[in-house]
C-alpha cells in the first residue's frame, strides 16, 4: 500500500487546513476549466441540433438575452451585476463584523468569549437559506423616520442575510489564525514586557494577517456562488432573470441546458481566477513552523 502514502499525506494535510479554517477549500485546477468549456460546447451543440428550424435557435436566444442576464435593463444594475454587488457588500459587512467577533472569541473575559463563541456557532451552523428567509421576511420594505421614508430594497436585505453566515465563518478564520501561531510568540512577547493589547496588535495579528488572506478569499468565492439563493426571495438577480428570459422565449425545453450552463459559466469565469489566486497566495504565505 506504499503507493497510497503520498495521497494519504496530501489528504491529511488538506484535512488539517480545513479543520483549522473550519471550511472546505475550493481547489480549482486548470483541467476543471477545460471540462467546463467542453460540457458547455457539447450541450449547446446538442441543443442547437435539437431545436425546431422555424424558431430562434438556442444560441441566438442566448445572445439576445445575454445583456439582460448580465445587468438587466439598460442603465440598471440587476442580473449578474446584482449578484456581484450583493457579494461585495455582504463580504464587506461580514468581514467587519466577523473580525470583531473573532477577536472577541480570544478575549480573556469568559462571558465575552463564550457569548461570541455561541454567536459564531449559531450563525455558522444555520442553513444559509434559513438565515436569508428570516432576514428578508423580518425587515420591513421601508423604514419611516418621522416624515422621512427610507426604502429598504430586497437586495439590501439579501446583503444582510448573506453577511451573517460570512461573519460567523470569518470569525472562525480569525480565531483559527491566532490559534495557529506557536505559543512561543505569546511567551516571548510577555517576557519582553509587552501588554496583551500590544502583543495582539503588534506581534500576533500582523503574522495572522497573511494566513487569513487565503481562507478569506475562499469564503468570498463561496459567498459569490451562494448569491443566486436570493432568487427564491424574488431579488432581481441573474437566476431569476434567466428564468424570465426563457419564459419570454416560450419556455422551450432545449433552452434550459444552454441558459443554465451559461450561468454556470459566468460564475465560473468570475470565481476561477480568484480561487487560483488564493491558491498561489497560500503557497507564498506558507509559514514554516
Amino acid at each position: 500500500m506504499d503507493v497510497l502514502l503520498p495521497i494519504a499525506r496530501q489528504q491529511k494535510a488538506q484535512a488539517m487546513t480545513e479543520r483549522l479554517e473550519g471550511t472546505f477549500r475550493l481547489n480549482l485546477q486548470p483541467h476543471h476549466a477545460i471540462w467546463m468549456l467542453l460540457i458547455f460546447v457539447f450541450t449547446v451543440g446538442a441543443a442547437q441540433a435539437q431545436a425546431p428550424r422555424e424558431l430562434i435557435s438556442p444560441i441566438d436566444a442566448l445572445v439576445k438575452w445575454m445583456p439582460f442576464i448580465l445587468w438587466g435593463q439598460e442603465g440598471t444594475l440587476n442580473g449578474f451585476a446584482l449578484n456581484l454587488m450583493i457579494s461585495f457588500f455582504a463580504m464587506l459587512f461580514g468581514t467587519i463584523a466577523g473580525v470583531t467577533l473573532g477577536l472577541m472569541q480570544i478575549s480573556l473575559l469568559l462571558p465575552v468569549r463564550k457569548g461570541s463563541w455561541f454567536v459564531t456557532q449559531f450563525f455558522r451552523n444555520s442553513p444559509w437559506l434559513v438565515l436569508l428567509f428570516t432576514i428578508m421576511l423580518l425587515f420591513p420594505f421601508e423604514i419611516e423616520l418621522g416624515n422621512m421614508i427610507i426604502p429598504v430594497p430586497d437586495w439590501m436585505k439579501a446583503v444582510i442575510g448573506f453577511a451573517l453566515p460570512v461573519m460567523a465563518n470569518i470569525s472562525e478564520v480569525v480565531r483559527g489564525a491566532v490559534r495557529s501561531l506557536p505559543t512561543g510568540q505569546w511567551e516571548s512577547a510577555e517576557s519582553l514586557a509587552f501588554s496583551r493589547r500590544q502583543t495582539l496588535w503588534m506581534i500576533i495579528l500582523p503574522q495572522c494577517f497573511k494566513r487569513m488572506i487565503p481562507p478569506w478569499i475562499n469564503w468570498y468565492c463561496i459567498l459569490a456562488m451562494a448569491t443566486p439563493l436570493a432568487s427564491i426571495m424574488g431579488v432581481e438577480e441573474s437566476v431569476s432573470y434567466t428564468a424570465q428570459a426563457m419564459n419570454a422565449e416560450g419556455d422551450r425545453p432545449e433552452l434550459l441546458p444552454v441558459f443554465y450552463l451559461f450561468l454556470l459559466l459566468i460564475f465560473f469565469v468570475y470565481t476561477y481566477p480568484i480561487a487560483r489566486w488564493s491558491i498561489r497566495l497560500e503557497k507564498k504565505f506558507v509559514v514554516k513552523t
Binding site: 439576445k64 438575452w65 445583456p67 439582460f68 438587466g72 435593463q73 439598460e74 440598471t76 428564468a243 424570465q244 428570459a245 419564459n247 419570454a248 416560450g250
Partner: peptide, 15 residues
C-alpha cells in the same frame, strides 16, 4: 408576473 407570457413577461430590452 414577469414569467407568465403573455400576461406579464420581459421584452428583449428587459422591460
Amino acid at each position: 408576473k414577469a414569467d407568465y407570457k403573455p400576461w406579464g413577461f420581459r421584452d428583449s430590452s428587459g422591460k
